[in-house]
């Protein structure tokens, strides 16, 4: 059983950091597995020849893999049913060898009708400090 339980609204403060995730460096094998699991077979993620013909130096990671990692920060903090919305902007491509840290931070508390919510800023940053994705989620708390 998941150990995740919904935090109480009263116990959460703006500025609280969610437990972050340090991901292993991106490998071609990782992208191949994600390709099959996700059904996203765009060759730009697995086929070096195609990537080069498209003007890139190498294959690039699926943005949605990086978003899924930041999603794990959310589901590691609350049961998934508490997530009201989740958005991401893809700011920089993630390359082979990049080691991503996925983070979340509570940036706002608000009441929406019956729901007591927080807005969480989520991001993915590489080993050089480059931000790959930036987004937010609204989470309903207990």
């Amino acid at each position: 059983m998941s150990s995740v339980t919904t935090p109480r609204y009263a116990d959460v403060a703006v500025g609280d950091a969610l437990p972050s995730l340090d991901l292993p460096p991106v490998t071609r094998a990782m992208l191949a597995v994600y390709c099959g699991a996700s059904g996203d077979h765009n060759p730009v993620h697995v086929d070096l020849d195609f990537a080069r013909a498209s003007g890139l130096d190498d294959v690039i990671a699926h943005g949605m893999l990086v978003m899924a990692w930041t999603g794990r920060v959310l589901t590691g903090w609350v049961p998934q049913s508490a997530i009201v919305s989740f958005d991401t902007r893809f700011l920089a491509v993630t390359r082979i060898g990049d080691a991503i840290t996925a983070r979340g931070e509570v940036i706002e508390k608000f009441v929406d009708g019956e729901r007591r919510c927080v807005r969480v800023a989520v991001s993915a940053v590489d080993q050089h400090g480059e931000t790959k994705t930036s987004g937010s989620a609204i989470v309903a708390l207990a």
Partner: peptide, 17 residues
Amino acid sequence: PLGRVLHGGQAFTYHAP
């Protein structure tokens, strides 16, 4: 052209599991 496409952003709103 598929090779020139990048994913700029993605936003989900959830109603039911």
